[in-house]
Amino acid sequence: MKVRYYIDPTTELPHIYKHEVDESEVEDVLSKPGEDRPGREGSRIAIGQNRIWALLALSSKD
C-alpha cells in the first residue's frame, strides 16, 4: 500500500502530526478501516479509531 501525506508547508512535516497522529496509526486504519468508501480522484476515505496513548511513569523508589 502506497500512502502519500500532505506536507505542511510551514513545518515541512506531515500534516497529520498536528492532530497527534503518526504514520503507523494511519497505516493501521487504512489496513483495517471501520468504514471505507471511495473519495474524489481515485482516493479512499477510510475511517477508524487511532491509537490512544498513555503516559507511563516508571521510578525505582520514591
Binding site: R51, I52, A54, L55, L56, A57, L58, S59
Partner: peptide, 29 residues
C-alpha cells in the same frame, strides 16, 4: 521518575505497557 509514551490496545494490561517500553524505549528495563 522516567516517563514513556505507550500506545493503548484493546485488552492491554500494565505488563504489556512495560513490555512495550522494553521493546521500544528502554531495552534494559
Amino acid at each position: 521518575m522516567v516517563e514513556y509514551k505507550v500506545p493503548i490496545a484493546p485488552g492491554m494490561v500494565v505488563l504489556d505497557a512495560l513490555h512495550y517500553v522494553q521493546a521500544h524505549d528502554a531495552a534494559d528495563l
